[in-house]
C-alpha cells in the first residue's frame, strides 16, 4: 500500500523530529490559549458588567465600539489575520516564522472568541444571585471576583477546552505558513511530498491529541461543577 520510501521517511521523522513537533504543537496551543484568556477573560466580564443593564454600566458608545472590534476580528479569516498581524509580530517578537512567530497571530485570532465565550458563560448566571449579592452591599468588583467568576467556573472551564481545541486547530492550519508542529509536518512532508503515510500519521496524532484534551476537559469540568449531585 505504501512505498518503501514513504515508510523510510516516516521512520526518519519519528526517530528525529516527532517529539519536537509534538512539543511545538503543544506550545502553539497552550501559550496562545493562556494569553487569549488573559485578554479575553477581563474583556468578556466587561461585556457583561458594562452592559446597560449590567452591574456597572459603561457608556453605550464604548460598549458598541468594543463589540464591533470583537466582531471584526472574529470575521477575518485566520490565515489572513496571520499575514496582517505579522508586522506586529516582527516588531514585538522579532520574527514572523516558526512557533515563536505564530504566538501573536494565534492570540489575536483567539482572544475575541474567548471574550465571547466568557461573556456567554457569565450571562448564564442567575440574575437573582447577583441581586442577592447587591442586597448584601457587594461592590461591582466583589461581584465579579466572588460571584460571577466562581459561579461561572464550570462553564468557563468547559469553554477553556473549547478554546484550546479551536486554537489547536488554528495552529495546525498555520502549518501552511511555516508555523512548525504536527500540522506543519502533515503539510510539508505529507501533502507537498505526496507522502500519504506521513500525512495521515500526523492527522491521526492530531486527532488523538484533541481526544485527550476533550476528555481531560470533560473530567475537570464535571469535577468542578457543584450543581451536579
Amino acid at each position: 500500500m505504501f512505498s518503501e520510501k514513504d515508510v523510510q521517511l516516516l521512520k526518519n521523522i519519528v526517530q528525529s523530529d516527532l517529539l519536537e513537533a509534538i512539543g511545538q504543537t503543544l506550545v502553539m496551543t497552550f501559550l496562545p490559549t493562556f494569553l487569549a484568556f488573559a485578554i479575553g477573560l477581563p474583556l468578556g466580564v466587561l461585556l457583561v458588567t458594562g452592559d446597560e443593564r449590567g452591574i456597572r454600566p459603561l457608556p453605550g458608545a464604548l460598549m458598541k465600539t468594543v463589540n464591533v472590534i470583537i466582531n471584526l476580528l472574529r470575521s477575518v479569516p485566520f490565515l489572513i489575520l496571520i499575514v496582517v498581524v505579522s508586522p506586529l509580530s516582527r516588531f514585538v517578537l522579532g520574527t514572523t516564522a516558526g512557533v515563536k512567530g505564530m504566538i501573536l497571530p494565534l492570540t489575536v485570532a483567539a482572544f475575541p472568541f474567548v471574550a465571547r465565550i466568557v461573556e456567554t458563560s457569565i450571562r448564564e448566571i442567575d440574575q437573582g444571585v447577583i441581586e442577592a449579592a447587591q442586597s448584601m452591599g457587594a461592590s461591582p468588583m466583589q461581584i465579579v471576583c466572588k460571584v460571577l467568576i466562581p459561579e461561572a467556573k464550570p462553564a468557563l472551564l468547559s469553554n477553556f477546552f473549547v478554546a484550546l481545541i479551536t486554537i489547536f486547530g488554528y495552529g495546525a492550519m498555520a502549518g501552511i505558513l511555516g508555523a512548525g508542529g504536527l500540522g506543519s509536518f502533515a503539510i510539508t512532508y505529507g501533502h507537498y511530498r505526496r507522502n500519504e503515510l506521513v500525512m495521515w500519521t500526523m492527522v491521526v496524532l492530531l486527532v488523538i491529541l484533541v481526544q485527550i484534551f476533550q476528555s481531560t476537559g470533560n473530567i475537570i469540568t464535571k469535577r468542578s461543577d457543584k450543581r451536579i449531585r
Partner: peptide, 27 residues
C-alpha cells in the same frame, strides 16, 4: 438590612457554610 427571595438565590458553587460566610467576606 438583608433580603431573602422566592428563588433562594444561593451561590450554587459554594457549600451552605460558605454561603453563610459570604456576606462576612464582603464586609
Amino acid at each position: 438590612m438583608s433580603m431573602i427571595f422566592q428563588g433562594f438565590n444561593l451561590l450554587m458553587q459554594r457549600t451552605a457554610l460558605q454561603n453563610i460566610c459570604f456576606p462576612l467576606e464582603l464586609s
